[in-house]
Amino acid sequence: MSPRNWFDQGGQAYARFRPEYPSELAAYLGRIAPSRELAVDVGCGNGQLTTQLAAHFDAVLGIDPSADQIANAVPQEGVRYVLGPAEHLPVGDRGASLVCAAQAAHWFDLPAFYAEARRVAASGAVLALISYGVLALDDALSERFDRFYWQQIGPYWPPERKLVDNGYADLPFPFDERAAPPMAIGKDWTLREFLGYVSTWSAVRGVREAGREDLLTAFAEDLTTLWGDPAATRRITWPINMRVGSL
Rank of each mutant, 00 (worst) to 15 (best):
T50I: 06
V198L: 13
L215E: 11
P65T: 05
Q151A: 14
Y132T: 08
R144L: 05
S97V: 08
R161K: 15
F219R: 06
A128Q: 12
R36G: 11
L171Y: 00
G186W: 00
A169H: 12
R94W: 00
D170R: 14
R18G: 05
P239A: 03
R147M: 04
G154Q: 11
Q76V: 05
G154W: 12
W150T: 08
V79T: 07
K162A: 15
T50S: 14
Y21V: 01
I153S: 07
A59K: 13
P172S: 11
F17S: 01
S35N: 13
L226W: 03
N72D: 10
F173D: 04
Y114W: 13
A55V: 03
A203T: 07
N72E: 13
G133I: 06
G92N: 08
L129H: 09
Q76K: 14
S246W: 00
Y168P: 06
L163G: 02
G167Y: 08
L89R: 03
L223I: 05
R147T: 12
A210V: 01
Y14R: 09
E116T: 06
F194Q: 00
R119A: 02
V244L: 03
A67T: 14
A102S: 15
A136I: 09
E20L: 13
H106A: 04
P65Q: 05
A86D: 01
P85K: 04
L29K: 10
A140N: 13
A27L: 11
A96W: 01
A26L: 08
V244A: 09
L195S: 10
N241K: 05
R16F: 00
W189K: 05
M1F: 02
A96R: 09
W189S: 06
P90T: 00
E77Q: 14
E209Q: 15
P34Q: 06
M1P: 05
P22R: 13
G47K: 10
A59T: 11
L29T: 04
V40H: 04
V207K: 08
E87L: 06
S131N: 13
S202Y: 07
A104Y: 04
F148R: 07
G43T: 02
A136Y: 09
R119T: 00
L83T: 03
W157P: 02
D146I: 06
L195Y: 02
V79P: 02
E193C: 02
L247F: 15
A59L: 08
V120Q: 04
V207R: 03
S202N: 12
G30V: 12
V60M: 12
R118M: 09
N166C: 15
G228K: 11
P155G: 11
L25Y: 03
D222A: 14
D176S: 13
P239Q: 05
Y28G: 05
G45H: 09
Q151F: 03
E213S: 14
A96F: 03
L49Q: 05
A203C: 04
A55S: 15
W6I: 00
D138V: 08
F194G: 02
Y28F: 15
V60D: 02
D176P: 00
Y149K: 09
L127A: 02
D188G: 03
T51V: 15
D139C: 05
A26G: 07
G206P: 05
